[in-house]
Nucleic acid binder design. Structure first.
Length: 580
RNA sequence: GCGCCUGUAGCUCAGCUGGAUAGAGCAACUGCCUUCUAAGCAGUGGGUCAGGAGUUCGAAUCUCUUCAGGCGCGCCA
């Protein structure tokens, strides 16, 4: 019905105000009609008269009075009032108001969807954690966020692809391999373990699994491998990697085995976190600089041809400062190896080449200094940098028993995402990760997530859903099938559901707003408010002792309320609970 | 030093592209379970929206500035 109001406002503006088109379109652009916060102000409200008053230098209240007269003549609405400094408050006809409930029941799972992003494709790249170990709680927030905006954008009509970029080409992979190697041949190496290797217990598990499936024979002298290694931890591991590669031919076999095992764990963790990807993109598929036809070589050649990349001091640099970066960045080191940045340039080129209308990168906030140079490379390759939208996710601090949970990947033992899911469940985990705007620091309180009080908003919302389910069960137990209309409400004899219906009518607007702003937390706060309306209703009304007509109408309405809560939770990747 | 983020009730946070008396929960105090799930509801008290200036019909929201806190500034990934 907001559309109807806006159409009438358009007609009013052009015929009544009699002013030039330029000003009219400015008014049209700036004003907004919204669903009211409370029923005292009717169902819909518009600030159009104040905007018009300001642009046309006229008294807003006079315009409002004229608009009220105009709208009254159309007979589209039950009641129209001007209020305050020049708001227009509209009360809908009972039938239009109740139509919301019918629409929700009909649309059911599709209620809240729109075609806002129709014909546009968006790719979201997120998590993309190095495949060197299981996901930890730091990755959880990006995972929940990327997946949620994927769901939200899909529901707004966008064609969405979710992608995980696997960093399987760099030094990290060698360190992973060396770590596993050292565990496999622990005894041959006199229990030596490199200082900079991955120390988690998963490394030993991978080593054991490898030993079970392969004949492991070191063949060379283990003592020689570890003799006189450099003291410096970085140099130590690099030297060890070099020696193993030169003497142990099964190195690639361990490497691919370790990668597969780690990826398997990551996929399992994500799956139990209700996060799925449409595509897993391997960094190594970008090829090597030695291959003329590889993606990485071609991307860099393009930059060299356009003179944005140049040689200096034996290295190849990209002129990123031209696009606002602090300094220029190295693409190819003086020893001929590509940097991580070079891979990323080629990767982003490939993403754009794949034809998406928009790319969203979900990055940890610590990478924000990296945005400029990626944008610069996109411009350098001749693309519009606006195609890329980097969404930063701040770290989440976990609190347990009142104090901060430490997580350190180096020491080996850390609080993993799987631990979190095991402790509070997927739903509550996702919920709290998403409960605050992504680019702001989040204190994640594990004790709160498990608490059984109103303070725990997750269960507060789920409880509303479960209570409705319980009523619906009791209704169908005695009545057989579900009611199909709300005659008592539309007829105007029963008003107690009005606040709930009014709340439900906001839902599609909330979803759209979350979609445009990429902010899932808006849905959480909406659901919290809506759950409150329900609990309040539930307390004031003894549903099942009402008259038959009233019961039917209430149940029809509550089924709609259940749909709204369930749809909202599903957009967050959370399964609604039917019984608590 | 430069860049990004943040500062709203005692605590944890909402507050949509500027809109009507700034909202929740917790904590404090009061009520409501022989009736559909009390993980619930209703009420009371609690605010210089960090400080200052500006933009205008109107600012927590936009601009500038001061103060305070967090993070990032590699031929690492």
């Amino acid at each position: 019905m907001i559309d109807t109001l806006n159409e009438e406002i358009s007609k009013f503006l052009s015929s009544f105000l009699n002013t030039e088109d330029e000003k009219l379109s400015l008014i049209e652009k700036k004003y907004s009609s919204t669903i009211t916060d409370d029923l005292d102000k009717g169902h819909i409200t518009s600030n159009v008269c104040m905007i018009a008053g300001s642009i046309l230098k006229k008294n807003p209240k006079e315009i409002a009075d004229a608009l009220v007269e105009w709208l009254k003549k159309t007979d589209n609405f039950h009641e129209i009032e001007s209020a305050g400094p020049g708001f227009i408050n509209v009360t809908l006809k009972r039938s239009d108001f109740v139509a919301t409930v019918h629409k929700i029941n009909e649309d059911s799972k599709k209620f809240g969807e729109s075609d806002y992003g129709k014909d546009k494709s968006i790719q979201i790249e997120f998590v993309s954690a190095n495949p060197t170990g299981p996901l930890h709680v730091g990755h959880g927030r990006g995972a929940a966020y990327g997946d949620a905006i994927g769901r939200i954008l899909s529901s707004s009509g966008y064609k969405v692809q979710k992608e995980y970029y696997i960093n399987d080409a760099g030094r990290q992979m060698d360190i992973l391999t060396a770590s596993v190697f050292a565990r496999i041949f622990e005894s041959e190496l006199d229990n030596f373990f490199p200082k900079n290797a991955y120390k988690g217990s998963y490394i030993s598990e991978i080593a054991m699994a490898f030993r079970d499936k392969n004949n492991c024979n070191l063949e060379t002298d283990g003592h020689a491998l570890i003799k006189d290694l450099p003291e410096d931890e970085e140099k130590e591991i690099d030297e060890l990697i070099l020696r193993i590669k030169n003497t142990y031919e099964a190195w690639p076999k361990i490497k691919s085995f370790a990668l597969d095992e780690v990826l398997k764990t990551i996929k399992e963790d994500l799956e139990s976190f209700n996060v799925t990807f449409d595509n897993w993109y391997s960094e190594s598929s970008l090829g090597s600089l030695d291959d003329k036809n590889s993606k990485i070589k071609k991307a860099i050649d393009t930059l060299i041809t356009s003179k944005l990349a140049y040689e200096d001091n034996g290295a190849i640099w990209l002129d990123t400062s031209k696009s606002g970066d602090d300094k220029n960045r190295v693409l190819i080191r003086d020893d001929g190896r590509a940097t991580y940045f070079a891979s990323d340039v080629a990767y982003h080129k490939d993403k754009i080449d794949r034809g998406f209308d928009k790319l969203i990168n979900v990055w940890g906030a610590d990478h924000h200094g990296y945005i400029k140079r990626i944008e610069a490379s996109i411009e350098g390759l001749g693309f519009d940098k606006e195609k890329l939208d980097v969404q930063l996710v701040q770290f989440a601090n976990l609190f347990k028993d009142g104090s901060r949970v430490k997580m350190s990947t180096r020491s080996g033992d850390f609080y993993s995402l799987a631990d979190l899911i095991g402790e509070i469940g997927t739903g509550a985990s996702r919920f709290y990760y998403l409960s605050k705007q992504a680019d702001q620091h989040l204190d994640f309180d594990l004790d709160l997530a498990k608490a059984d009080s109103k303070e725990n908003i997750f269960y507060y919302i789920q409880y509303a859903h479960a209570r409705i389910c319980s009523l619906l069960r009791k209704y169908t137990d005695s009545h057989g099938s579900m009611p199909e209309n709300a005659s008592a409400i539309s007829g105007g004899s029963y008003y107690n559901c009005d606040e709930l219906i009014h709340g439900m009518s906001k839902y599609p607007h909330v979803v759209l707003r979350a979609s445009i702003s990429l902010q899932p937390h808006l849905i959480i706060y909406y659901l919290k408010d809506f759950a409150h309306s329900f609990h309040s209703f539930y307390n004031d009304n003894q549903v099942l002792t009402e008259s038959k007509e009233n019961i039917d109408s209430i149940i029809f309405c509550l089924n709609a309320a259940k749909i709204v809560i369930a749809n909202g939770l599903k957009l967050l990747g959370i399964e609604p609970i039917e019984k608590m």
